[in-house]
Design a protein around this nucleic acid. Structure first.
Lengths: 331, 331
DNA sequence: ATGAAAGCGCTAACAT
DNA sequence: ATGTTAGCGCTTTCAT
């Protein structure tokens, strides 16, 4: 049985309340007593019980994080940034690993809620809008990475239009005009990205061409097949993310289409994969660190009820140019 | 303020104890009452308070997981398997994201401990052996992925010798005899892998050649440079993991060395990257699902104190052959 | 500066 | 089958 405050108090010859004060670094404790108590605690290997503490104090220093897909390294990155920001802000994190199933997300969140979280960060959630809204009525929520402004729910996200503009301007600068998009599927984040693409293509007076894919290498392969069926073949492709992009590149190269000689390819996320010498994928770098900071800061506001209206923060992305994009053939 | 059991009880016109019984699906409750209570709970949006519950029941259904490096997709995979196994076993998970710093690991574990975990899964921990041992005296621990038998600490891991044998036999079968190893650095898991390589090379009567690297693409690049400095160039390379392997391949190809024509390359982890068409890396597939199951099962035993002596479970790996390995030139 | 006592939301005997 | 009661380990008034 783990030692309790009581054990420490007895050993130090003081009251439980005093131990409590010492453990919380309260100001009005004499240096002598403080030392005695700390030593007793140390000798006993005492650790405060966080459950009992939050039960008594009714103060919760824990945020929940719902991760949509743990096997996607990009989320690891975003999670890392949230974790760093949370630590700076003095919050613990409770993590629930999603599995790409909307229903499962809802049940994971329920578990999180039972563990008394003060707020919730949702990384690219897939749950239905109605669930999201109900949820945000229960606990302060900030979504990272979905652009759709779900009414009443805060979000921190890339500015998809600005990001798409980065891509299209880069490609247009290389002489491309026939720029296709391989999507990330029918999910909200994928649709947002597609909408950005369409908006920017329209802006540039170019004809959009959209091929269905997924946020996975397999989805990219599917998208690659879709591209190959296009006539004429586009000279450039904006893929939904890096995994999609490498799937596309795999198919193109296998069919003897040179990248970037015949077709330029751009991904999203600037993940480790994109940076591999072997891959060299030009990619939109998500402002991952900024995501974590913004989400945690916002959550802290919401918890303190100084938040005001829900809002979506759009954080600009940047383009990392590598060897998968080049001038259009014959330009 | 969130509704409590008391609120539900009042609304349903029953006692708090009955609500408690209903919430825990206890057997001896009349269907009528059960319905009444559930409806009241639902109307109030009641969620049990997990802190209060575990405080009162003294039963903790939560395991902690220390992840050594969140940005490494392989850990995402392993974590996923632990999460699945934990769910099947009815445990919640509390996750602490490591940052490759041994000191930080210790403090993360302390936080985890304060949150009343019943047991701890450590994914390739870097903390010192002494810390590990002290820790395992405090709470049941199972390490995943480090082979070194830290006295008194349970582990679930690949059989590194068997894994290396898989690699060397495959390569020898292709006519290779000059097989080098690019290491994962000076950490425990890296050393274990290296030891497996050395053991198997000795077994096969082959001369080991070891080049320092890291478990990252950059480390692989460094290893690739190291290889290029070797004379003669080995005809095959066993890299410490997939990231290392792609780093190596990048350097080799950049220097005009054909893979697998001139040099065959093998990685470890069979990660998403290895499976990319663009990469096609032959790789040792870690028995990731088995890791999660074994670790959680073992932890449950330890918690129930039916564990007995600490032991290391070695789970066999398998080799996934792709296009980065081929017959030795001229064979 | 320190202690006494009440109570956080829940479970777990024990009654009935 | 349901209610009563006594804590779980901690924080928090309120005294002293």
């Amino acid at each position: 049985m783990r030692p309790t405050q009581e054990d420490v108090a007895r050993r130090a010859g003081v009251s439980r309340a005093l131990v409590s004060l010492v453990m919380r670094d309260a100001p009005n404790v004499s240096p002598t007593r403080r030392r005695t108590v700390l030593r007793a605690a140390d000798e006993l290997g005492y650790r405060p019980n966080a459950s009992a503490r939050s039960l008594a104090s009714k103060e919760v220093r824990t945020f929940g994080v719902l991760i949509h897909d743990v096997t996607n390294p990009y989320f690891g990155l975003v999670y890392g940034s949230v974790a760093a920001a949370a630590e700076r802000a003095g919050y613990d994190l409770l993590v629930a690993p999603g599995t790409r199933s909307p229903e499962r997300e809802v049940s994971l969140v329920r578990t999180l809620l039972e563990h008394q979280i003060a707020g919730l960060v949702l990384l690219s959630p897939m749950m239905r809008t109605a669930d999201l809204q109900r949820l945000s009525g229960t606990v302060p929520c900030v979504i990272i990475g979905s652009d759709t402004s779900v009414a009443g729910v805060d979000a921190v996200t890339t500015d998809e239009v600005q990001a798409a503009r980065l891509v299209v301007e880069h490609l247009v600068g290389l002489g491309h005009r026939d720029i296709a998009h391989v999507t990330g599927g029918p999910t909200r984040p994928a649709r947002d990205r597609e909408a950005g693409y369409r908006a920017v293509m329209a802006e540039a007076g170019l004809e959009p061409r959209v091929v269905p894919g997924e946020f996975t290498p397999e989805g990219g392969r599917e998208g690659g097949e879709g591209l190959m069926a296009l006539d004429p073949l586009p000279t450039a492709v904006m893929a939904a993310n890096d995994l999609t992009a490498v799937g596309v590149m795999g198919v193109l190269r296998a069919r003897g289409v040179d990248v970037p000689g015949d077709v330029s390819v751009v991904g999203f996320d600037d993940s480790q994969i994109a940076a591999l010498d072997l891959v060299g994928l030009t990619s939109v770098r998500q402002p991952v660190d900024a995501f974590g900071d913004a989400a945690v800061a916002r959550l802290a506001e919401l918890v303190a009820e100084t938040g005001g209206e829900a809002r979506t923060q759009h954080i600009p992305a940047e383009l990392v140019i590598r060897s998968s994009t080049g001038p259009v053939r014959g330009a």
